[in-house]
Amino acid sequence: MPSPGYWRGIPSRLRLEAVRCSSCENVVYPSRRICPHCHGTKWEPAELSRTGEVVTSTVVHVAPDDFAMEAPYVLALIETPEGARLMLQVTDCELNEIGPGTAVNLEFRRIRAEGNSGILCYGFKAVPAG
């Protein structure tokens, strides 16, 4: 990813900043111009909880080159208490203990070293709660 793109992603990716639609109150992550639910254009800032629940998950065995050293890893769709959904890796867990309903905490982690130049990319990963 070119570095401007990486910088643009900092609020959502590194701070989990979302937005709440002023007209329909749905929380949308990451922020966007037009509400997918009601087409509203007025937003309030909303920060996502650092907790969530697994909606569906998989264990990735064949990974893209940048993630080859990590495989096998769990990838899951996580829903936060605010109703936002994120696709994140689940880490620090037994591969088979993750499934629908698993409670997780979201933690700031290194995601990968990108490409030949090895640029470090950060973001959130989920870890089983408790």
């Binding site: 990813m1 992603g9 990716r13 990451p30 990735v60 064949v62 990974a63 893209p64 940048d66 993630f67 990590e70 890893y73 990838l75 994120l86 696709m87 994140l88 890796q89 995601i111 990968r112 990319c121 973001g123």
Partner: peptide
């Protein structure tokens, strides 16, 4: 790319 592939989705 921003929401899925970034996190290792294939």
């Amino acid at each position: 790319q921003e929401l899925e592939a970034y996190h290792g989705a294939t």
